[in-house]
Design a protein around this nucleic acid. Sequence first.
DNA 1: CCGTACTTGATACAAAGTATCATCTGCAAC
DNA 2: GTTGCAGATGATACTTTGTATCAAGTACGG
Lengths: 159, 159
Amino acid sequence: MRQGNKASPARALERALHRLEDLCRERGQRLTRPRRAVLAKLLTAGRALSAYELLDLLRPEDGKSTAASVYRTLDFLMALGIVHRLESTRSFVLCEHPGGPHWVQFLICRRCGQVVEAEDERIAAATERLGQRLGFALDQRIVELTGVCEGCRGSAARH
Amino acid sequence: MRQGNKASPARALERALHRLEDLCRERGQRLTRPRRAVLAKLLTAGRALSAYELLDLLRPEDGKSTAASVYRTLDFLMALGIVHRLESTRSFVLCEHPGGPHWVQFLICRRCGQVVEAEDERIAAATERLGQRLGFALDQRIVELTGVCEGCRGSAARH
DNA sequence: CCGTACTTGATACAAAGTATCATCTGCAAC
DNA sequence: GTTGCAGATGATACTTTGTATCAAGTACGG
Ligand SMILES: [Zn+2]
Ligand SMILES: [Zn+2]
Ligand SMILES: [Zn+2]
Ligand SMILES: [Zn+2]
């Protein structure tokens, strides 16, 4: 078990907010309260959340949150590249690979909901090649692999 | 340009319905009117359709169609493996690879909506490998590649 | 501290998908 | 053929997910 974000949640949050601040400055975007709040909720949740789950988490401490505002904010964070959308579960998750734009694959455990963000060279190359072979100039590559994670298979007493 | 289904639409429909009949018999499933109708609409449309587009096509000749019935029927056809769901566009498309269960990739043109169903060995192997490396027993692999197809790039006068 | 371009808040709505239950029917058995 | 009935449909209502619009508010460069 690596000692990533879980070791010191407060520090991790601080780092993430700093990163958001930097990105906004670099790209001439405003850093507003809802943007900070959504980032914070996604980080502390530590898992993928649907827009409405997020809304439920935000409302207690900001009654002005609405579906529209949550979606707007998520769109913004996705454009910055620090949040990804999982199409297969209609949910949103923090990027685990700080840095520029990147093509990733998601592994999703159907038992515990864990989401792992991978950057596999082999898959990136293979998809690019397929696009070329079929004459497509690709600009988006959705790869979402669903199954059961190691931990959940271990504790697979039931079913 | 290969002479697949477009050569003789009526024949293609007949073949598809026969195939549905066989599959139903093999698997002890009932062949009902809505199942035939949905298959027919997907085939004659020749493209991916959302559930509600399908509903609009079905209603004129069967006023009893509802969202619930369309989704039920689509679920059935997906279980048979002759229809796939495109997560990124929330739409449904006929399978282009008659035969058993298979893992496919979709290439989707964002300009004309064309959908190509590919079965790429390299991608299949790479995703399986990634799953193993990360300890996931995969049971679903969504690969949807979006871009602009060759034809649409050719006629790319605008934008 | 000002001004304003950009963002938010509020509202209403559209699209996508599901739950429930009474009624009907495909089809295997007779 | 006719019948029986498990499994499917029809009808209805509802939940979840996502967007459009526009007036009011504010982050931040000057
Ligand atoms: Zn990422
Ligand atoms: Zn798990
Ligand atoms: Zn297929
Ligand atoms: Zn095209």
